[in-house]
């Protein structure tokens, strides 16, 4: 066998080895979503709402963090499907800079939302929405409606209206967590610690 033939054979074997490794894994590979170009992103509308402990929470408190902002209601079946995913994301990605924030649009207010938080052991902050925030975020006639907001407080992806796949959320979250931002670089103050109902201060 000539040197050229030997090199060709080695190349083919290498390519085959790479293909084998790529196909043999049973772990699902998440394709990274492509966020909007940073210069074209629009600022998420500012709001201040109240959490289940009575604390005032503003969107600007989360500058420097990637925010998954989910509008939902206790009467919304598809919302219930997503909530366990969001609980997982909060655990998995919090240390990397993700904050999951749920805004309940229940008209009956904390009377129905607080028991839901307790019974479902929600591990992320829940705020109570109002007509004002509803108008700011497009009317919210359909739930769930979810926004991914980058560390600069801007919409990085189109809003998700209705139930979408868990992997799509994971992909978008990972994409944003990997982005460099001026806020993160400057080490701006992060959001106040979440106080879950009944937790000692």
């Amino acid at each position: 066998m000539s040197l050229a033939q030997h090199k060709s054979r080695l190349l083919l074997l290498s390519l085959a080895a790479v293909a084998l490794v790529s196909c043999s894994g049973s772990k699902e590979t998440v394709k990274h979503a492509t966020a909007k170009a940073q210069e074209s992103r629009k600022a998420a509308p500012a709001f201040t709402l109240t959490d289940s402990n009575g604390s005032k929470v503003s969107l600007k408190d989360y500058r420097g963090k990637v925010v998954l902002l989910n509008f939902w209601a206790t009467w919304c079946g598809p919302c219930q499907v997503e909530i366990p995913w969001f609980q997982e994301f909060e655990q998995q990605y919090k240390s990397k800079g993700l904050e999951v924030v749920g805004v309940s649009m229940d008209e009956e207010g904390w009377q129905v939302v607080k028991p839901y938080i307790t019974s479902h052991k929600l591990n992320y902050r829940i705020l109570l929405g109002d007509d004002s925030v509803s108008q700011l975020y497009g009317g919210l006639d359909a739930l769930p409606t979810t926004f991914l907001i980058d560390r600069e407080g801007k919409f990085a992806f189109p809003p998700h209206v209705g139930l979408i796949g868990k992997n799509q959320y994971a992909s978008e979250i990972q994409s944003l967590l990997e982005e460099k931002s001026e806020s993160a670089a400057l080490g701006l103050q992060s959001a106040p610690a979440i106080l879950l109902p009944g937790a000692a201060q």
Binding site: Q135, G138, D141, V161
Partner: peptide, 15 residues
């Protein structure tokens, strides 16, 4: 600005 984000669901919701 915010209303333009949700045009398709806006129409669906109004139905």
């Amino acid at each position: 600005m915010a209303s333009s984000l949700l045009l398709p669901s806006c129409c669906l919701a109004q139905l």
